[in-house]
Nucleic acid binder design. Structure first.
Length: 270
DNA sequence: AAAGACACCTGTCCGC
DNA sequence: TGCGGACAGGTGTCTT
């Protein structure tokens, strides 16, 4: 489900329901997520949520006692719902609030995480080595150009590397490369600075547009109010292997790069 | 250091 | 209708 836009949409959706509210109960129905949910998350009980933030694809629920660090993995979803709603099989964690609502984490595949950061959450081992946020000035064409010198891996794999830039997942990597006219197979180290500047612009444009559209709903992603994301209507290539290129109408190719499905136009992307 | 494979887990879809 | 296999939005970890 979630790439950066979907996480950002979730963050914006849940924040108004959480900030300033006090947590009355932390209900861990199944602690077997990607890592076991630590006991410390019980420290949330009685705490007031000071802020809800996002770093890369992690969501941070900040309180005076510490910060809950959430990741949605491949199939995670967050909803703010009435506390009386009956939990089902994949509803693993529920954070009850003094407003009578609760935050529910649903995650069928359990690749998601619910962790704890006692002090500065950004110093958590999982967050420490992350690259810059794509929608800030810290991410620019110069950075991609410099870090890519000497790299032989495919440019698509390169921009999906969290050490280089965070938040570019499989959907938006495919889309940004198509928009930039760059073949996903090209060695990262062989791309010019000018083309990296273009790629940077397209990554920012695609991500910002997707956030504006409420994310991309492929199967089960919904915004925190249950509505789907509408960026799916904007997809140019992702999931469209074999279909005509929206620009030149030659059939889109679908290959594997780094075990991820990769769609591109051999005519438009060089 | 960098590149690539693999692991985690469940649900869904497709072909036979 | 049932069954096996491939595949899915991520990413830490291990092996070359």
């Amino acid at each position: 489900m979630p790439e950066l836009p979907e996480v950002e949409v979730s963050c914006r959706g849940i924040a108004p329901h959480l900030e300033g509210k006090t947590i009355t109960q932390v209900e861990v129905r199944n602690p077997s997520l990607r890592w076991p949910v630590p006991e410390e998350v019980q420290l949330l009980e009685g705490q007031t949520v000071l802020a809800v933030k996002r770093r890369a694809k992690y969501l941070l629920l900040e309180t005076k006692a510490g910060t809950a660090i959430l990741h949605l993995g491949m199939s995670g979803r967050l909803r703010v719902i009435d506390a009386s709603e009956v939990a089902e099989k994949h509803d693993h964690v529920q954070i009850h609030l003094d407003s009578g609502k609760m935050l529910r984490l649903t995650d069928p595949r359990r690749f998601g995480a619910f962790l704890w950061g006692a002090d500065a959450p950004l110093s958590h081992p999982l967050l420490q080595k992350l690259g810059p946020e794509p929608l800030t000035e810290d991410f620019d064409g110069e950075r991609l150009y410099q870090l890519s010198r000497g790299r032989r891996s495919a440019v698509k794999t390169f921009i999906m590397d969290n050490h280089i830039v965070v938040g570019v997942g499989n959907i938006y990597a495919n889309e940004a490369l198509f928009a930039s006219g760059i073949s996903p197979k090209t060695a990262a180290g062989k791309i010019s600075k000018a083309r990296y500047q273009r790629l940077t612009e397209e990554i920012k444009r695609v991500l910002a547009k997707a956030i504006q559209q409420g994310g991309t709903t492929l199967k089960d992603f919904t915004q925190s109010d249950g509505k789907p994301g509408y960026f799916v209507q904007e997809l140019q290539v992702y999931g469209k292997g074999g279909e005509p290129c929206p620009v030149c109408e030659s059939p889109l190719k679908e290959i594997k790069l780094g075990q991820r499905s990769t769609v591109y136009c051999a005519q438009c992307q060089r």
